[in-house]
Write a protein that binds this DNA or RNA. Structure first.
Lengths: 83, 83
DNA sequence: GTGAAATATAGGATATATCCTATGTTTTGT
DNA sequence: ACAAAACATAGGATATATCCTATATTTCAC
C-alpha cells in the first residue's frame, strides 16, 4: 500500500483524463500500470517515477511541466471566471 | 542496488552540476539524498521519483522539461559548433 | 430509481528507489 | 609526482512505488 499521505506536488491527470473522456482503466492500459496506480496518483498519494510521468505526459501530448507542478493548478471554474 | 540498466530518459544533471562547480556531495545535501543517488541518476541507472526530480530542478532553478527529456540532449561541444 | 460502470478504500505481495559502507579508480591542484 | 578530492563500482539493508484481489461506494445512462 502507498504512503496514504499526500505528495508535495500537484497534477492535472484527473482533469485531462475526464476532459478527454478516458477511464482509469484505459489510461492505465495505455501507460502500462495498474488502474489503482492511476487512482493513487490522482489523489496525490503517490510519488510516481519520472518514467511513468513521461509516459502519462506522452499519452496526453503535453509536457511534464504542463502536467505536474509544485504549486496548485487553478481549477477550471476559476479559469472561466478570469477569462 | 539499482537496476544497472539504463533508464529510458535523459538528463542534464551532470552538465548543470559541473557547469556550476558543485560536487555530488553538495547537490546531494541540498536535495536531501545520498551522494551515490546523484551518481546513479547521472549515469542514467535510476528511475528517480518526481519529487526528487522537482527538488533537483528547483536547486538549479530550471523546469522539469529543461532538466529531463525523452530524447538526448545535444552535448555542449555540438552547441558550440552550431552557434 | 435500477443496473452497470467507474471510483474509493484496504491489505498483502513484489520490485525497485534509495540508503549506507567499503574499496578502487580517476581527476585535479600544487 | 603526490596528495586530496571526486567519482565509480559493488553488496547488503530498508522504504516505498507498484501490483493484485476483493469489497464498498459513487456516478451515470436508461
Amino acid at each position: 500500500m502507498p504512503s496514504t499521505r499526500k505528495v508535495d506536488f500537484h497534477n492535472r491527470v484527473r482533469l485531462l483524463r475526464t476532459e478527454r473522456g478516458v477511464s482509469r482503466q484505459q489510461l492505465a492500459d495505455a501507460v502500462g500500470v495498474h488502474p489503482q496506480t492511476i487512482g493513487y496518483i490522482e489523489r496525490r498519494q503517490y510519488n510516481l517515477s519520472l518514467s511513468l510521468a513521461f509516459r502519462i505526459a506522452g499519452y496526453f501530448g503535453v509536457t511534464l511541466d504542463a502536467l505536474f507542478s509544485k504549486t496548485a493548478f487553478a481549477p477550471l471554474s476559476n479559469d472561466a471566471l478570469t477569462s
